[in-house]
Structure formats: structure tokens, C-alpha cells
């Protein structure tokens, strides 16, 4: 499950830089959720509606595979996946979370603009029906206003025919090709999550069920990139906390960034391989007799 904001292509950027293709080559059977661009109905979705959709996709997959699959969420997709595992424990064999935010108040460095503008932007989302891509990109800008100046200067210094420039272009295309965020879920994120820390304070209710990580028993892997400037490591680490975190959790800290954990030169060794090994070792949930 990728984020609702940035699309899934970062998980399958090129034949070599593809977590999904690496999983398939290792003998796993990965399925990917492509959220697309919200249509008229989806523009009225809140997090509950998105989790309900994931539940239906999971039911389809469990039937197709005749066993409970492991679920894997990246970034905000990870936050939604926690709710999925809480609501469908018997259909989830394992829960892997990559840079998934949970405790939105654990480290608010750089969030001043986001928090102060949040309620106003939520009004915009209410009126427009969605939070437009350029507004979302402005929030990313606010985390590091000089980033574009630094990185486009660096890009100019690269061999334009080389692999580095090629990757820069593909990543930049992905970053700028985000989807708008449905109005109700935008309000939840801006005011509920960043403003009031609803998930991290144990008040997130999805379909009548309060989502409490400490009550989720499925085997879980929490991967935390220590250089993450989009999801603060402390926010993701809340899911691996010995008391408040997931009950049956393995924590892995990676010396990578938010995007680097899935596409950098070291992603294969430091993230993909341990992730694939962990997924392979999950006990089967609905074992059938061996022939």
C-alpha cells in the first residue's frame, strides 16, 4: 500500500530499482494498490472509507491466494495498513511498515507551517472537495524551502546521459505526479493527525473500532529510516515502542532517507533484502496439507 499523496511508481521505478520486482524475483507474490486519482465518489472518502476499500481488496486476495497475505504499507499507506490489520487480524498474516507515521507529535521539527496552515487548508479541502496537488507540494516545500535550489543545482552538475541524472529525472517525475487528497481525508490528516495526533494518542476510530497498536498481535516489522525528513523517525518508532507499539514487533533502523529506503543504491542491501527475508519467514496463517 503506497501513500494516497505520492503515487506507487517509486516502488517500481525502473527494472532494477523496483522493490516490487525484487520481491517477485525472490519468489514472493506481490500485489500493489494503485489508488489512482480520486473520482467524484472518492473525493468524499475519509480514512474509514479507504480502509474499508482495503478490506475488500484483502478479502479478494485472501480468496484468490487461499491464504492470508502479509500486508505492507509505505508512508501514509502504512498508517492505513495498521488500521487494516487491526480490523482484519484473521486475514492478515503479517504487517510490514516502511516509514509509516503514527505519533504525529513525537517530533514536530519543521511542522510549524503545516500545523498553523492546517485548519485553513482543511477549509480549502472542504470547499474544493480535495486538497490540490500544488497545495500538497507546498507542504513538502515548507519542510525544506531550499531543497529545490540545492537539488537542481546538483542535477546540473551531473553527467546528463548518466545513470544518476536518469534516476533524478524519474524520481522528480514521480514526486511531481502526485494525486490530490480527498477532502475528508485531507481534513483528518491536517487537523486530526498533524494537529491533534489522533492515531498516536489512541483515538483513531475506524468503522467503530479504536485502532490500538498494542492490541494487534500479527507478526509485525517496523522499518525506520533514520534520515527521514518527511516522516520523523520518532513518529514511525511509536509503532515499535515496547509498551504502546505493535505487540509482536521487530524493529529495524536503516541509515537511509524516506525515499532512499526504497530506491537508493543501498536500498537493496539495507531494506529490500531484510524485508523480503522477514516476509518469507512469517508463519502461514491458513496452512494446507503438503502433498
Amino acid at each position: 500500500m503506497p501513500s494516497l499523496i505520492n503515487r506507487w511508481e517509486v516502488l517500481d521505478l525502473t527494472a532494477e530499482k523496483s522493490l516490487l520486482r525484487a520481491m517477485a524475483a525472490a519468489g514472493l507474490r506481490p500485489y500493489l494498490v494503485d489508488w489512482g486519482t480520486p473520482n467524484d465518489e472518492e473525493r468524499r472518502f475519509d480514512s474509514e472509507a479507504y480502509v474499508a476499500r482495503l478490506e475488500r481488496a484483502l478479502a479478494f486476495l485472501a480468496k484468490r491466494a487461499r491464504r492470508a497475505p502479509a500486508v505492507l504499507g509505505y508512508c501514509m499507506g502504512g498508517t492505513l495498513t495498521v488500521a487494516l490489520a487491526a480490523r482484519q487480524p484473521r486475514r492478515v498474516a503479517g504487517l510490514a511498515l516502511l516509514a509509516a507515521p503514527w505519533d504525529f507529535h513525537a517530533d514536530r521539527t519543521g511542522h510549524a507551517f503545516l500545523v498553523s496552515a492546517g485548519p485553513l487548508l482543511a477549509e480549502v479541502a472542504d470547499k474544493v472537495g480535495e486538497l490540490p496537488v500544488d497545495v500538497l507540494q507546498t507542504l513538502f516545500w515548507s519542510l525544506d524551502p531550499w531543497l529545490a535550489v540545492k537539488k537542481f543545482g546538483r542535477f546540473l552538475g551531473m553527467d546528463q546521459a548518466g545513470a544518476g541524472a536518469r534516476e533524478f529525472v524519474l524520481l522528480e517525475d514521480w514526486l511531481n505526479d502526485g494525486a490530490p487528497l480527498a477532502g475528508p481525508v485531507a481534513r483528518e490528516c491536517l487537523v486530526g493527525w498533524y494537529g491533534d495526533n489522533v492515531p498516536g494518542s489512541g483515538r483513531w476510530v475506524v468503522g467503530g473500532r479504536r485502532i490500538v497498536p498494542a492490541k494487534i498481535n500479527v507478526p509485525a516489522l517496523v522499518m525506520i529510516p533514520s534520515g527521514d525528513r518527511i516522516v520523523p523517525p520518532l513518529s514511525a518508532a511509536a509503532l515499535a515502542d515496547p509498551v504502546r507499539g505493535l505487540k509482536n514487533v521487530t524493529r529495524r533502523d536503516l541509515p537511509l532517507g524516506h525515499i532512499g529506503m526504497v530506491v537508493s543504491g543501498r536500498a537493496r542491501d539495507l531494506c529490500w533484502t531484510p524485508l523480503i527475508d522477514w516476509l518469507r519467514d512469517i508463519p502461514a496463517k491458513t496452512p494446507r496439507k503438503r502433498h
Binding site: L20, A25, L28, Y31, D34, G36, N39, E41, E42, R53
Partner: peptide
């Protein structure tokens, strides 16, 4: 709706 589930099993025989 506009959500799709893509089957990456199609990308490699091992899967």
C-alpha cells in the same frame, strides 16, 4: 472505483 490491484506475479516466473 479508481483503485486497482496490480499483480506483480506477472513480472517474474519465480513469483
Amino acid at each position: 472505483g479508481n483503485t486497482r490491484l496490480l499483480d506483480y506475479g506477472a513480472t517474474h516466473p519465480a513469483a
